[in-house]
Every structure is written in structure tokens, then in C-alpha cells.
Amino acid sequence: MGVALRAGDMVIVRTADVGHHHRTPWFVKGKAGTVRLVHGAFPNPESRAHGGDGLPKRRLCQVEFRQTDVWGKRYRGADADVVLVDMFEHWLERG
């Protein structure tokens, strides 16, 4: 994983099309964002959903995406509007 992500870090969400349960919304896959804060470590839902113990825990980051980056011209709002998504660190690559 390298050095843990911190607030302010630029990230890109992995585009993996995994076949199991995961908590990464499709609309941010492949999108660039900025880590706003790190909530702490939580059991990995991709393990727990399939009978596993969720260990090792994964750090959960709140990532900010610009709405115009997520939806492009479809987005009808202000350029400054954002969506904040809680994302597990193993879905994030440094941008």
C-alpha cells in the first residue's frame, strides 16, 4: 500500500470490476478526487459480506469529487458543487 493516505492527497479511484460485494459506487470509479479526512480503520466489507472476518481492517477515507468531474455536462449545478464519498483505501491510488 505504501505510505498511508492523508487529508489533502490527490487520488484516483480504481476501476476494478470485481465480482463480489463492495462499497465503491460505480459513479466514482476512475474519477480523480481529494482526500478530505481519514475516518480510521474499519473491517473490510468485501470480506465480511462473504462470511469472512473483515481483517485486516482497512482505513476509510472521505474523498471529495467535483460534481462536474463525476457527471460531466450532465451536471446542472454550480462548478464548485462536490460529492463526498467514504471510500476504503484499497480502492484509491495516488493521483
Binding site: 471529495e64 460534481q67 446542472r76 449545478g77 458543487d81 462536490v82 460529492v83 464519498v85 467514504d86 476504503f88
Partner: peptide, 28 residues
Amino acid sequence: EPRAVLREFGLALAGRVRVAVVDSTADV
């Protein structure tokens, strides 16, 4: 389209107010 949803709930925000949608996808 959060601004359209807010209008339907009766809240018209000025364009200068930044809208931040919070998607609680996980443990928070």
C-alpha cells in the same frame, strides 16, 4: 441533481452556495 431535489423539498439555494452531497457508503 441535488439542487433539483432540494427545490422539490422547498429549498431554493443561491448559486453561490456550494452544494456538498455526502454519500455515506460505509461505516460512518
